[in-house]
Design a binder for these strands. Structure first.
Lengths: 160, 160
DNA sequence: TATTGTTATACTCTATAACTATA
DNA sequence: TATAGTTATAGAGTATAACAATA
């Protein structure tokens, strides 16, 4: 038989929602022993790779609103993984860096998430996983263009 | 330069979260004129394709908790798109069917979501979109196996 | 006047326990 | 006793307005 959700299975968004819900549940379980969630893990990685980063910039990179980032950084600072230091050039802003503990936890968490990722993509060949990354990034570009009419870099929206 | 989130870009989950957030925002905007959200649209489609469906079964199919489904069906019933009727065989249960209006709105919404889907996957060839569906469904299978050790149908988890 | 970080708030989505009515 | 649907509730995640300090 066809399956009760066969109409929905035609849509990428439906397959993606189901896959993502399972990934998110599993990755949060993987990160829990480190005291991290998906979003605090993401912030920790970006700060580690970009020392001195300002909060506004981090919010842009992760596409989250500034007010929501405050709580995420409070969380990371409380766990002694990240520090906020006043910028000397612009005393409104904070420069973000990871602590020694933060760098260590980040390394271990990245390794754990890599294992999680391998589990989630098992049964797919390397080329299939690369094609998946490519497709997801193309969709991200298309979605940005839809939400921001000034971005015509890839031209997927309706022609003039 | 490498991009501040290059560590995260290695993970399927990160690319998928970003792509899905954009898809979800766009599809909800597409569905708003129909008075639908992603989840009420999904429920409407499944009910239309499976007349007489019970609420418990629908919750299983869409992988949502029964209490949350109640509000979704209240929403659809209030809009006169779906009706709940007491089952004669089991008077605890409700049988779900779409109204004539529900069938009409479902048709139009499916067409609108098909156009949304084409927009989101533009720049990808048909074979790439098919490969995307395949990869997402494999991840869903892998994720189910992780969350339910009794499901070894595809064997992606650690061997005994 | 504009920007950085913050507070407060609200709205959605999701998850769990406990209730009712039926089986 | 077990199940179907419901209620109440609590926890995330997300979005906006308004404020203080600084530019």
């Amino acid at each position: 038989m066809a399956g009760a959700d066969s109409t929905l299975r035609r849509f990428v968004g439906y397959d993606m929602k189901r896959a993502f819900n399972l990934i998110q549940g599993d990755v949060n379980a993987v990160l829990k022993p480190f005291g991290l969630r998906m979003v605090t893990f993401s912030a920790l990685c970006v700060i580690r790779d970009t020392p001195g980063l300002k909060q506004s910039r981090l919010a842009q990179i992760l596409m989250i609103e500034r007010p929501n980032l405050v709580l995420i950084l409070d969380d990371l600072e409380r766990a002694d993984l990240v520090v906020r230091e006043r910028s000397r050039e612009d005393r409104r802003a904070f420069e973000l860096t990871v602590t020694a503990l933060g760098a260590q936890v980040c390394n271990q968490a990245v390794a754990a998430v890599e294992r999680h990722d391998a589990r989630m993509t098992s049964g797919l060949e390397g080329a299939e996983v690369q094609a998946l990354h490519k497709a997801l990034r193309q969709i991200e570009l298309n979605g940005r263009s839809v939400n921001d009419p000034s971005d015509r870099s890839t031209g997927p929206v309706s022609p003039p």
